[in-house]
Write a protein that binds this DNA or RNA. Sequence first.
DNA 1: CTGAAAGCGCTAACAT
DNA 2: ATGTTAGCGCTTTCAG
Lengths: 371, 371
Amino acid sequence: MTDERRRKNKKATIYDIAKKTGTSTATVSRVLSSSGYPVKEETRKKILKTAKELNYTPNIIGRMLKKNDSRDIGVIIPTISNPFYPQVVLGIEMEARQKGYNILLCNSLRDPAIEKKYIETLYQKQVKGIIISSAGDNGNDEFLQEMQWMGLRIITIDHDIKGIGCGMVGFDYKKGGMIATEYLISCGHRNITFITSPLTRASRRDTMEGYRQALMNNGIEAREENILVGEREEEYESAAYEFENGKMMVRKMLQLDEKPSAIFAVNDMTALGAIQELVNSGFDVPGDISVIGFDNIEVSSMVNPPLTTVHQPAFETGKLAFGMLLESFEDPGANGGEDGHTWGDNNKNRNIIRNTILEPSLVIRKSVAVI
Amino acid sequence: MTDERRRKNKKATIYDIAKKTGTSTATVSRVLSSSGYPVKEETRKKILKTAKELNYTPNIIGRMLKKNDSRDIGVIIPTISNPFYPQVVLGIEMEARQKGYNILLCNSLRDPAIEKKYIETLYQKQVKGIIISSAGDNGNDEFLQEMQWMGLRIITIDHDIKGIGCGMVGFDYKKGGMIATEYLISCGHRNITFITSPLTRASRRDTMEGYRQALMNNGIEAREENILVGEREEEYESAAYEFENGKMMVRKMLQLDEKPSAIFAVNDMTALGAIQELVNSGFDVPGDISVIGFDNIEVSSMVNPPLTTVHQPAFETGKLAFGMLLESFEDPGANGGEDGHTWGDNNKNRNIIRNTILEPSLVIRKSVAVI
DNA sequence: CTGAAAGCGCTAACAT
DNA sequence: ATGTTAGCGCTTTCAG
């Protein structure tokens, strides 16, 4: 009966192969899942042959359910259209592919509701772990924490999850901010404007902190009117917004009593906006005003003038994040104990936390002049 | 025994809830999967409450196996670092999320082996369909065809799969090529160079065809030395390569006896390379030489000068592709027949093929001068 | 070296 | 309205 229903229209299963070869599903499974389990050469051959004939291809879902193990990981980012993320994602995927993992890509648009939904779905889909970049500042921290309790492996990019230790790969924004500012100073600039989109994220605040610090270290007063912060824009994080904001901040800057000789933009997109507005207003970059960016997105070397900027290793970030995730699979963690008791509050050693902070470096191109 | 093993360390299942509420798994399933099946309000409440207490969250894998239905789709593209694709992927995901689907992202790097492996894996992971953009020209056509036979739904972007009818969303490259060229002509240009990366893809050949056609239509001779094709570079498709190629082609162009007044680049990245090389060589764009691109990637409006180009609606492409995929789920298709006989060769009506060809449009910015 | 059988978590007839 | 039961496709003891 059940036999009849098979081979009707459905894909072949190990059951079909067992039937056809006069063996058992156990044996078929053993050869087809390349378990290394000893099977007589003859039988193996026959099974392999029949599998081919029947166009057999394993159903991973069955295996997943049985082994309670998955080869998928979730990747949650604000939006892939922000040119920083494609490189990150590529870095993750290059590593993941090599290790036999697949990526479920999720764009949260920094909307906490969307993000939460994604986390939930990923969890239900039994992903083995997730790499998340929009975390922090947005209220899903407790939720993530819960998920981690329940066994989900989490690696964050650029943000700590408050309260729990989960791996993270970060970037030294403050140092980056200092490097950029110090370079400007070393080129003879004293009056430097910092332009940024709203300071809703720690990374931006840190970068600004670096700017301040560098000025202070060099005995330059950090005047508040030299820090131009974009309006809170509820539109989702997009390249277009950063660009527009750059233009807007330049317009604001142009009204300053004392015009700066250099602009430090919180990211490359903003820098591009600034340059365009400057050019439109008849200024030469860097002839009249210098501009330095932050991120070193791929196009920053392709624009005119090529942008001097601070390199943030996006691809490396992705690779590292996946590497850390992989390592975390090794740890016993919340769900791994033999006895099954949940670790209670002695969770200090629960996750071996290996945070990695990537270092910024300066990329000198042609958008900054020596004065 | 089996009861004991539960609650050990594992996540709660409907079985646990049934146990705890003194009901059956059937009932629990009915309420927790919001099946709409009638359940006494009291029981429902109790189950919901217990589910919360036990921190229950459904295991989609179990459901998938049972229902033989998945909510994942695969997306295969050359590389997300090519700035055309993030928009496509975003378009796909925006639609997909709304319909409750998730995206497995795969970067093939145009390597047929990688691509094949991905297709295979996706199939085994029981994705409901795939959207593929690197298809064509690379030898995986028969394989894809087989997969389609076996019930995989496939939508291609920009390329037919020879031999089978599967949905595709394409773009009228030839028309785009004509539009660009005609615009140049209308601006007074007669001597126009077409620069391109290797003609390994139909899209590039079509664009060139459009260029030729437009010249012909306007009684301008299409001289072969005005068509500059990059060396076959076996490096994978990257933005950097296109950019470098643009520079290289300009260097070649600069050696031409009769210098053109305008350059038509096969894509925006190539155009950016061309502009940079031109500027480096002391030319003004568009003062001395005009440049027109193709694609209208997001940054093309942010560079200096803002690039005049042909708009290819990447986001729309993604949205449409997912829409078509969704529609294809409705069709009975290869696996849907009640009787299970495979349709043999009367596969004409097997898939209702709804190809969509998107139309190009001109985006005039500032990289082309009227002469 | 092989097979029988249990069962991963869930749903859906088919009773009742 | 609820429970029983039979699997979905696969792996893995446990016995031979």
